[in-house]
Design a protein around this nucleic acid. Structure first.
Lengths: 244, 244
DNA sequence: GCGTATCTGCGTATGATATACACAGATCTA
DNA sequence: TAGATCTGTGTATATCATACGCAGATACGC
């Protein structure tokens, strides 16, 4: 079972593997591991010790194999990370059929946020390209479905869904980074900034800090998320009204 | 010149350094290097060979010093990356005073996009926290200033600016990733996806692909960027109308 | 002017990392 | 049964960040 597929030469191996495009010749000995097993081990390590601890050696130890055995299932570490990311997103929840597009997308955005909060390390994986793995496609499907009744063009639907998922990802990234630092650490940041930022050179930032917008109110809570989410959805609503 | 500052124990060293909070005791020999010089060398390497090539050894060779000499100026590689990121953003362009908030923010978003296109490797640096370095604060200042006349609350202004900058960053990330793959590679992706995606399981995605939304039209051009940007700005406009 | 503390730059060492390569044994096909 | 092929493994290599200590240069206190 070689990981590279001869018939699909220019596809990243991780994608081919994830979609199950593999010849199973069954010549040699039965594989003792399975790809989901390895990916799950990666998830466990990432969850317990962070993404930085996810090395091939560490994952191999987790499944009880030698380091190099993993390379029989995964062409490179980046592929494993891609697969871990897809597994972390998981399958999107089923769409309740009785919602309008706005309610559906709101729920969809919340579901993404929950997935990212459950697996914060996903945000540390550098973006390697457009979403192409099965679960990511499933989330995309689910988002596009919400826009089915709006009459938008297909390319517009796609842009809207990408815009929204980008917002969630971006917001989660910031919120988790601040949350991971801890409230006292964040407070120290704020006081330091307050001392360092020149009110003459940065009057608007100073005003925001003086109004407590930067730190005091910023609990990383859901209110801020809803605010941005509503802004984006309002923008989409304006578009649907313009094109009935 | 030790990099850690004793009086500010809990501040990341990179921030203290970037803001010039350093004691200059002037006891030992004059430093032969300067921090901007090192950061510039990092930029050069990243520009020419990508972020992955930016190692301490490579940067040191670039400035003509030994590897360990860099650690007299930077506490860790992450600090260097933070400083490189701030240098890549550079100073925001001056705000033309005769623009309304929407025009101002539009121009601001475009300026960010241009900076990111000029330094695509910035998008590969994992987000370590809220923007705290001088140039990033300057961009924040510039964005907040655009909203000065809207009467929004300070916390709302901040959320809006973060929302917008997040969108730009997200979009640039996707667009650059697709662009870096090259058009032929992207076309191969699309054909592979078309074969792999089950129209029964993913009808909406299939419809989008059939309509050519995924690949044919997606040139990563400016039209897609403007579309999402206008959505976000429409959402903000709705807010300002609701609160005059 | 002099001693001394202190800073700079450097060479070396260490531990972690991804991954290439070749081999032994297991398994299926002919 | 013979050969092809796949699996798991050990070893080797190259790269990386960075800790540590040393030699020389410099400026301050006297």
């Amino acid at each position: 079972m070689e990981v590279v597929n001869i018939e699909e030469p220019n596809i990243p191996a991780s994608i081919a593997v994830a979609w199950g495009l593999r010849d199973r010749p069954g010549k040699g000995p039965r594989p003792g591991l399975s790809l989901p097993q390895i990916v799950q081990a990666g998830l466990d390590v990432a969850r317990a010790e962070g993404l930085a601890a996810v090395s091939m050696a560490r994952v191999a130890k987790e499944v009880g194999v030698s380091t190099m055995a993993l390379y029989r299932y995964v062409a490179a570490k980046d592929d494993l990370l891609d697969l871990m990311q897809d597994a972390a997103y998981g399958q999107p929840p089923e769409a309740p059929a009785d919602k309008d597009w706005r309610g559906g997308l709101t729920e969809w955005a919340w579901a993404i946020l929950h997935a990212l909060r459950k697996h914060p390390w996903v945000l540390q994986i550098p973006v390697s390209g457009p979403p192409l793995l099965p679960n990511q496609i499933a989330w995309l499907e689910r988002g596009l479905t919400c826009l089915g009744s709006t009459g938008l063009a297909e390319s517009q639907k796609l842009s809207v869904v990408m815009l929204l998922s980008g917002y969630v990802r971006q917001w989660a990234s910031l919120s988790i980074a601040v949350g991971a630092a801890g409230p006292d650490q964040a407070a120290r940041y704020a006081t330091t900034l307050a001392r360092v930022i020149d009110p003459v050179r940065f009057p608007a930032v100073s005003a925001a800090m003086a109004a407590g917008a930067v730190d005091d109110e910023w609990d990383g809570g859901d209110a801020e998320f809803v605010f941005g989410l509503d802004r984006v959805l309002d923008g989409i609503a304006a578009l649907t009204h313009a094109r009935p």
